[in-house]
Computed example of a mutant assay.
Amino acid sequence: MNGSAIENFSCVIYNIFFMNCTWQAGRDAPADTQYFLYWQKSRDEEERECELYIKDENWRNMGCIFQNVSIGIEKAYFLVNGSSKDSLIQFYDEYIDLYKIEKLMPPSNITVSCDEIKNDCIIQWQRPQISHSNKDMCFKYEINIKYKDNPKRKPIYTSIQEGGNSNIFLRSNTRKKYVLRMRAAGSACFVNPAWGEWSAPVEFGSEEIISSSIWILLGVAVATPLMAIVTIFFCKRTGCWKAAFPQIPGPKPDFFTLADTNPELMESKIQSISSENEEIVIVADLVR
C-alpha cells in the first residue's frame, strides 16, 4: 500500500556505544499498523531486530535504542517493515555510514596551567572517546575563551587546531579570570566531521577582588582631609572661628587701679568686713 512506509527515519550514536533511531508512521498507514526495525552492521554479521522499542500513545513502535554499538568501515543496513490486518505495509531500508551519525563527546581532562611571569597559559586535553579510533590526528578542536565576569560578550580568543592535545594562550590581563570551553570534530579517519558537544566550562586565572570594607576605608581616608581643607577655607572667608571660639574677657583694670591709687580705701573696706564678722559671732553667743 502506497504511503504506508515509515517517514523521516534517522539515527544518532551517542556516549560511544549507544544508538537511537526514530521514525514517523506512514501518512496512509492503517491505524493498526505496527513497525519493526532490523539492522545489519556489515555483510559478515547477521541481521538483528531491535530489542528496546520506543512506543507512542497508541503503543506503536516509533523508535529503537541500541546498546553496545561499534562503528566499522562498512555502511550499516537498516530495514523497517510493518504489518496490518487491513493491508500490506511497504518496507523502508537505508544504508548509513555509522561514523557520520556519531555525536562526538567533548575533549576530556581539560587542564590549564598559567605562568605568572610570562603570562602564558598551557591548555591540555585528551581526545574524545570513540569506539573505532585512538589517534589524535583524527580530530580537530575548537577552543573558546571568554572573561568570566562578562560571559555574554564575544570570545576574546578562538582557535581551531588540527590534531594535537595542547595549545598556548597568551593572557592580555593577568588580573582577570577566564572561562574556557572546547569541542571536537573529525578531521580525518572515519570520524564525523560535524562539531560535537561543548565541554563543561573550565575556569582559570586569578581575579583581584577589593571588598566593600576596603572601599569604605579608602573613601573615608580621602574624604576626611578634603572636608578639613574645605572647612578651614570656609571659616577663613566667613570668620566662623570667632563665633566658635570667642575670647575670654580679662579682669577690669579698675580693680587694679583702685588698689594701687587708693590704699586707704582698701584698708577701710577690710576693717569693715572684719567688724561685721565680729558682730555676727557676738549675736550667735547671745542666742546660745
Score class of each variant (00 low, 15 high):
residue 286 L to C: 14
residue 122 I to P: 00
residue 262 N to A: 11
residue 222 V to Y: 14
residue 91 F to W: 08
residue 219 G to W: 03
residue 207 E to H: 15
residue 49 E to P: 08
residue 217 L to C: 14
residue 104 L to K: 08
residue 246 P to W: 08
residue 242 K to Q: 10
residue 195 W to F: 08
residue 241 W to Q: 09
residue 134 N to D: 10
residue 21 C to N: 07
residue 81 N to R: 14
residue 225 P to E: 12
residue 113 S to M: 04
residue 1 M to N: 14
residue 224 T to V: 15
residue 193 P to C: 10
residue 170 L to N: 10
residue 80 V to C: 05
residue 152 K to M: 07
residue 151 P to E: 02
residue 161 Q to E: 00
residue 179 V to W: 01
residue 88 L to P: 02
residue 61 N to H: 14
residue 51 E to L: 14
residue 245 F to Q: 08
residue 220 V to D: 01
residue 188 A to Y: 09
residue 121 C to P: 00
residue 98 L to A: 09
residue 115 D to P: 09
residue 13 I to P: 03
residue 152 K to F: 09
residue 123 I to Q: 04
residue 251 P to F: 08
residue 87 S to W: 04
residue 178 Y to N: 04
residue 81 N to I: 01
residue 255 F to T: 10
residue 278 E to Q: 13
residue 64 C to G: 04
residue 24 Q to W: 01
residue 203 E to I: 01
residue 228 A to I: 12
residue 48 R to C: 05
residue 111 T to C: 02
residue 142 E to A: 04
residue 53 Y to L: 09
residue 232 I to M: 03
residue 88 L to T: 14
residue 76 A to F: 00
residue 279 E to P: 03
residue 52 L to W: 14
residue 94 E to W: 02
residue 208 E to A: 10
residue 269 K to N: 08
residue 160 I to R: 00
residue 204 F to N: 05
residue 26 G to Q: 04
residue 71 I to V: 15
residue 104 L to P: 01
residue 193 P to V: 03
residue 259 A to T: 10
residue 140 K to V: 00
residue 258 L to W: 06
residue 210 I to H: 07
residue 10 S to D: 11
residue 277 N to W: 06
residue 271 Q to G: 03
residue 158 T to L: 11
residue 124 Q to T: 15
residue 204 F to T: 01
residue 124 Q to Y: 01
residue 282 I to M: 12
residue 202 V to K: 15
residue 183 R to C: 05
residue 134 N to F: 06
residue 122 I to E: 10
residue 81 N to L: 02
residue 271 Q to C: 05
residue 175 R to L: 13
residue 32 D to R: 01
residue 265 L to V: 13
residue 20 N to E: 13
residue 192 N to C: 08
residue 196 G to V: 09
residue 155 P to W: 00
residue 269 K to C: 11
residue 31 A to R: 07
residue 280 I to S: 10
residue 265 L to N: 07
residue 168 I to E: 06
residue 52 L to V: 09
residue 80 V to T: 08
residue 198 W to Y: 11
residue 50 C to I: 15
residue 183 R to Y: 03
residue 19 M to P: 06
residue 67 Q to D: 12
residue 132 H to Y: 01
residue 15 N to G: 06
residue 178 Y to C: 06
residue 175 R to D: 13
residue 188 A to F: 03
residue 195 W to R: 04
residue 16 I to L: 11
residue 185 A to H: 02
residue 115 D to I: 00
residue 228 A to S: 14
residue 8 N to I: 01
residue 250 G to R: 13
residue 270 I to V: 11
residue 31 A to D: 14
residue 275 S to K: 15
residue 267 E to F: 10
residue 228 A to E: 10
residue 179 V to K: 01
residue 231 T to D: 03
residue 200 A to V: 00
residue 273 I to R: 12
residue 111 T to I: 00
residue 15 N to A: 10
residue 271 Q to W: 03
residue 150 N to H: 04
residue 8 N to Y: 05
residue 51 E to C: 04
residue 77 Y to F: 15
residue 164 G to S: 02
residue 47 E to D: 06
residue 244 A to T: 07
residue 260 D to E: 13
residue 27 R to W: 05
